[in-house]
Simulated assay, not measured.
Amino acid sequence: MPAVIEKALDYIGGMNTSASTPHSMDESTAKGIFKYLKELGVPVSAADVTARANQEGWNTEFTKKVAGWAAKIESGDRVLIKNPEYFSSYMQEQLGALVQAEHLPTE
């Protein structure tokens, strides 16, 4: 798994993953991360999310929701990001730098 996807999942792992439903701020952040990485040509898959969730013991319902968003965005479906400001420019810079450092192909 590319380091940029690992970092993205680190951000999500920092959320309250023991809750059955992600907080609205966390939902917007996760969707923003997935959308941004898809735009960079490095989409996060539902399998990536599920593997990390199983490894770290995330709540099953939380995992289903987040993996569902990843799958939706990876397939090109639209998602509503209610509070896009929660996906910070700092996160964008960190993820973008990892894509550049790994010389991953971008779309």
Score class of each variant (00 low, 15 high):
E27G: 08
A71G: 10
G96M: 02
K35Y: 15
F34D: 00
A71M: 13
T29E: 03
E39Y: 07
F62K: 11
V49F: 07
L80Y: 01
N83S: 10
K65W: 15
G57A: 06
S20V: 03
A47E: 00
K35P: 10
G68Q: 13
Y86H: 14
V44C: 00
G13M: 14
Q55S: 02
Q92S: 07
P105Y: 11
S24A: 02
A97G: 15
M1Y: 08
N83W: 15
H103V: 02
W58A: 04
D48S: 01
A47K: 01
A97P: 08
L9G: 02
G32E: 11
T17R: 15
K72L: 09
W69L: 12
T106P: 06
V44L: 03
D10A: 10
T17K: 14
V42K: 15
G14F: 08
E56T: 01
T29V: 09
A71T: 11
K72R: 08
E56F: 05
G96R: 10
R78G: 11
M1I: 03
E56C: 06
V49D: 01
V99T: 10
E85Q: 11
N83Q: 09
D26Q: 01
L40G: 07
K35G: 06
P22N: 00
A46C: 15
D10E: 15
G32D: 11
D77H: 13
E27I: 12
K65M: 14
E74A: 14
A19F: 14
P105D: 05
Q92I: 13
E107T: 10
Y86N: 06
K7I: 13
I5P: 00
N59E: 14
A47G: 00
A70P: 00
I81K: 02
A53G: 04
P22F: 05
P105T: 06
L40W: 04
A70C: 00
M15S: 08
F62W: 03
A53L: 02
W58Y: 11
E74W: 12
L9M: 04
S28E: 14
Q94V: 13
N16S: 09
P84I: 03
A67I: 08
A51D: 07
N54L: 04
Y90P: 02
K31C: 01
E74S: 15
R52T: 13
G68H: 09
Q55G: 02
T29S: 00
L37K: 08
K31Q: 00
A101L: 14
E6V: 00
E61N: 15
M91V: 02
T29N: 01
A97W: 11
H103M: 05
T17H: 09
A46S: 11
A19D: 06
E74K: 12
N83D: 03
G14H: 06
T106S: 13
T106R: 14
P2T: 13
T106Q: 12
P22T: 01
A47N: 03
T63F: 07
T29C: 15
A46Y: 04
V99W: 10
G41P: 08
S20T: 08
E74R: 13
A47M: 01
N16R: 05
K38L: 12
T63N: 10
K82P: 06
V79H: 12
S20F: 01
W58T: 04
A101N: 00
A101D: 05
D77R: 12
